[in-house]
């Protein structure tokens, strides 16, 4: 095979296109995030669901969840901002905000609000992959 300048230009062009395709996959990847306000057990301790909580993912409209409620947010990309607003036992409004990176390979994840409030930095405790089980008779 003759290797000349044209070959290198073509090789670089192909690599650039492949890299661009990978970038598009990362930018356009859609994840379903289930926003869950239910009791949860983390490291042996039971965390109680909040009676009422407001959650906003990225710039999407905020959702209000009561105890045992679950809703979903469809997000595009790999990094997302979660904004949780709730009232503590003294009726003082608390706002928590965190930017979280979502694993690329996961299509559906569950976001536990009580675990998020408990420890905002322990991402693994409140954001976990979720798989729909196929129920067969």
């Amino acid at each position: 095979m003759r290797i000349n300048k044209r070959f290198y230009i073509r090789a670089v062009a192909i690599i650039v296109v492949i890299l661009f395709a990978i970038l598009m996959a990362f930018v356009g990847k859609q994840h379903t995030i289930l926003l869950d306000n239910k009791n949860i057990e983390v490291n042996g301790a039971e965390l109680k669901a909040l009676s009422i909580v407001e959650i906003q993912v990225d710039k999407q409209p905020s959702l209000e969840l009561a105890k045992r409620d679950r809703d979903q947010a469809l997000v595009q990309g790999q990094t997302h901002t979660f904004l949780v607003t709730y009232n503590d036992e003294n009726w003082e409004e608390i706002v928590l905000e965190k930017k979280v990176k979502v694993p690329f390979s996961e299509d559906m994840l569950i976001f536990s609000i009580p675990a998020f409030i408990n420890d905002i930095d322990d991402v693994d405790s409140y954001l976990q992959p979720f798989e729909i089980e196929n129920v067969s008779e």
Partner: peptide, 10 residues
């Protein structure tokens, strides 16, 4: 599960 314009480009 890629969506939007990036999906079209891809």
């Amino acid at each position: 599960n890629v969506v939007g314009i990036p999906a079209m480009v891809l």
